[in-house]
Design a binder for these strands. Structure first.
Lengths: 164, 164
DNA sequence: ATATATTATATTGTGTACAATAGAGTTGTG
DNA sequence: CACAACTCTATTGTACACAATATAATATAT
């Protein structure tokens, strides 16, 4: 059911790039922000089939990466590391818990805090994830030096964006 | 109500970076994919307050950018340009229509197609958006050449990712 | 000690993303 | 023409993201 749309004669061609185009930088595809946005989408799209074998999404994988690096952290500490707030993390962590990859334990010392710990399954998943890391690195068709350089440029950009 | 969490003594410190870390590239913050992901989040976070003045989100703004460049396009053509499918675009376009920024007209020639056209309001919003574009460019703290170089590197990376 | 402020996590509501599917419309082939 | 294959958009269901808010616990100030 194509909801309430008055049919009309379709006029194919139309205007292009109206207004003062100082140069190509005004075009959508040449905007830095769109490049970041669309590359991020492409990246998660590539990860999806690889991670589905582990039963996790890319954001969940990022949380696991953080935990493999430092286990037994609070939700807030984890959120700072992966750059997500409780509104995103709480349901995400519940899903990881349901899958038996992590445990959530409220601290007895400060009962506001919830400590996140890897289970045996969650910890052992690291080995399989290392393979995926290599597959993605290969798909980038970048040398290690290129990846490192691009990563540093993005880190610098991100810091500038967060400062404003 | 902190749902069913058995309280325990909190043990603050713990292991770090177990396993064979060839070098710093294994750390989350030094991974290219996380840099893209987190920079994309930081970017939309910076856009949000600026775009809220126009009453649109960043993805909606991207769609408008595409339409300012080429008006009267089908949903599929728009989707290819902004890299989104109908599952995302259909509800997004309905919101833009509700706000009176676009019109959706089913083609009489090929009734499968829906043509998206800017309204007067939608077209005139471009001027305000140009100001935002400049503000964001400023926040990047990058020179025009740096932005261009980074954009090109991301375009190349995205093409590689999409090819796999 | 008690009121106040602050902190940590959870909840609610809106808006993406996208896989999978549906369904109407069009095209190609015999 | 019949009819299968294909195209285009919409729908459904799951999972982020995040602002705003809620709630309980802790810290601070008086």
């Amino acid at each position: 059911m194509p909801n309430r749309l008055s049919p009309v004669k379709s006029s194919a061609s139309q205007s292009a790039a109206s207004g003062s185009v100082e140069e190509a930088s005004m075009f959508l595809v040449n905007q830095l922000c769109f490049a970041i946005y669309s590359t991020s989408l492409a990246m998660t799209k590539l990860y999806r089939p690889l991670l589905s074998g582990l039963g996790v999404t890319y954001p969940q994988y990022v949380v696991l990466l953080a935990l493999w690096e430092q286990d037994d952290v609070t939700v807030t500490a984890l959120g700072e590391k992966v750059s997500l707030d409780s509104g995103t993390l709480t349901p995400l962590l519940k899903r990881l818990q349901t899958q038996g990859l992590i445990e959530r334990q409220r601290s007895a010392i400060d009962e506001r805090q919830v400590h996140i710990k890897l289970t045996r399954d969650g910890a052992s998943m690291k080995k399989k994830a290392d393979v995926i890391h290599d597959q993605i690195a290969c798909a980038t068709e970048c040398s290690s030096a290129e990846r490192k350089s691009l990563t540093r440029a993005l880190q610098k950009l991100r810091a500038s964006l967060l400062a404003h």
